[in-house]
Design a binder for these strands. Sequence first.
DNA 1: AGCGATTTAGTTGTGCGCAACTGAGTTGCT
DNA 2: AGCAACTCAGTTGCGCACAACTAAATCGCT
Lengths: 153, 153
Amino acid sequence: MTPTTRPPVPDAELLRLDHQVCFSLHAASRAFGSVYRDALKDLGLTYPQYLVMLVLWEHGSQPVKAIGEQLRLDSGTLSPLLKRLEAAGLVRRERSTEDERSVTIHLTADGDDLREQALPVPRRMLAATGLTIDELRTLRGLLGRVTSALDEA
Amino acid sequence: MTPTTRPPVPDAELLRLDHQVCFSLHAASRAFGSVYRDALKDLGLTYPQYLVMLVLWEHGSQPVKAIGEQLRLDSGTLSPLLKRLEAAGLVRRERSTEDERSVTIHLTADGDDLREQALPVPRRMLAATGLTIDELRTLRGLLGRVTSALDEA
DNA sequence: AGCGATTTAGTTGTGCGCAACTGAGTTGCT
DNA sequence: AGCAACTCAGTTGCGCACAACTAAATCGCT
């Protein structure tokens, strides 16, 4: 639309907006990380470790690859992270018998028990954001679209 | 509102929503990082280094502390990052004479020249997000509010 | 059956992010 | 003036993220 006329928003503002959005995202992500760090320190988990545990709590034992797809993480990140979860006694690694390339991650009893302790965490986080439900939904929607679009490029 | 009645959104959905928002944020931030990495590799800058250069391009020479406040980064992150920028010849460090605790960061001629090369980057990023101007503004607003709220906690 | 391409996890190396700490310099209080 | 509290930059140590690579297993094609 308006192909031959000036865009309604001047270039300079577009550029500033881009920087602000990217920077806001960066800052917001780190702010979340900081609050999660605090909420999770009693559990002895980092935020990425918590994400892995969530996947296991929700869907049960899974190969490394499946976890990586859900969290958008590769083996270079997951392998050492899972090693630390194993060292903490929360998780067990088992090489698959029918496909020996694959390693399945299982929860240990301790890992399963930890779920109980983790239950209040999301509510605490939710409150800390200070957003309404509708705003959260809008945010989630926009972020999802951005991520999909960026993954194309 | 509706103080004694059931909330209109069930608990379970709240929790899922929180996870989705936090996770989306994490994923979106990394997706941005990935596209920036690509857009910036010709300049030899990482995304955080680019953010520091933006601050210097826009506001000129500044002490480390001021840069950290604008980018929400501490000296543990900035000191080595600035060292790398200095090693790349983009930046010069100068201990302040009137307050010898403070180190002022100056752009070198090369660092100033790089601005020219960086000009097309934001437009490219903007296009890659696939969002409209209004959506970007909404996103920026929500992210800013989340970050402020989280910084309180 | 044989062999090249692909898949899966893991390793290595670099940089970011942050907590905890250090050390030099400054400020404020008495 | 003197000294405790604070400020600022830097260092150390750990974990995450990712590119590039390796090694082993599987798949697919002929």
